[in-house]
């Protein structure tokens, strides 16, 4: 909460990147509290680690300070307040923290837990579900990551190469 407010207030983008990294680390700790260790791991590695570095790389490409706003903040503030209120209203229906009768625990989870040890035999059930039962999904996710990589390479890397080549030609001529 405090980080969010600070992130809104600050105009220095460098501080903003650092704040968002810290926010990722805190939410990773939150996921550990919720017993979602795999998610926490990803959040800590990607959110706090790599994306901070990538954002710093972007900062090096652009300017380091945000321009002062030209609009009044009232409409965005209204939209954010309404969305936030709707989200909080939604949480009222959710089961209590650690509730054994929560829908997520009752639907397919018992079946996975019962079938996994003799069908796959991998102690970490998250891995088993991710790579075996939901193999298609994970294949799709990998393809998404791959596509993102190709996209960035196609947009940025070739541009740099072209510019370098052009500079080389200018030096020669």
């Amino acid at each position: 909460m405090a980080i969010g407010l600070a992130a809104v207030r600050t105009r220095s983008l460098f501080a903003l990147v650092m704040l968002s990294g810290g926010f990722s680390l805190i939410s990773a700790a939150l996921f550990v509290t919720l017993d979602a260790v795999d998610v926490a791991f990803t959040e800590a590695a990607v959110g706090a680690g790599v994306s901070t570095v990538l954002m710093l790389g972007t900062l090096a490409l652009t300017s380091r300070y945000e321009r002062p706003p030209v609009h009044r903040p009232w409409l965005p503030l209204f939209v954010v307040t309404v969305t936030g209120a709707a989200l909080i209203y939604g949480t009222l229906d959710m089961p209590n923290f650690g509730d054994a009768n929560a829908p997520a625990m009752l639907h397919v989870m018992p079946e996975y837990l019962a079938r996994e040890p003799h069908e796959i035999g991998v102690p970490n059930i998250v891995t088993a579900i991710l790579a075996s039962y939901r193999g298609y999904d994970t294949l799709g996710e990998t393809a998404v990551v791959f596509t993102a990589g190709i996209g960035v390479v196609a947009l940025l890397a070739t541009l740099a190469r072209r510019r370098r080549r052009r500079d080389g030609e200018e030096e020669e001529s």
């Binding site: 790389g57 991998v122 390479v153």
Partner: peptide, 30 residues
């Protein structure tokens, strides 16, 4: 199953490493 998970996770790992690195190269190389 174990071998399959190993291969598949290996594939995921290789792709993710390479994508992260190539994004990093693309940003820094400019």
């Amino acid at each position: 199953q174990e071998l399959g998970i190993l291969l598949v996770e290996g594939g995921v790992g290789i792709t993710v490493t390479a994508v992260m690195l190539s994004i990093y190269y693309a940003f820094v190389g400019r």
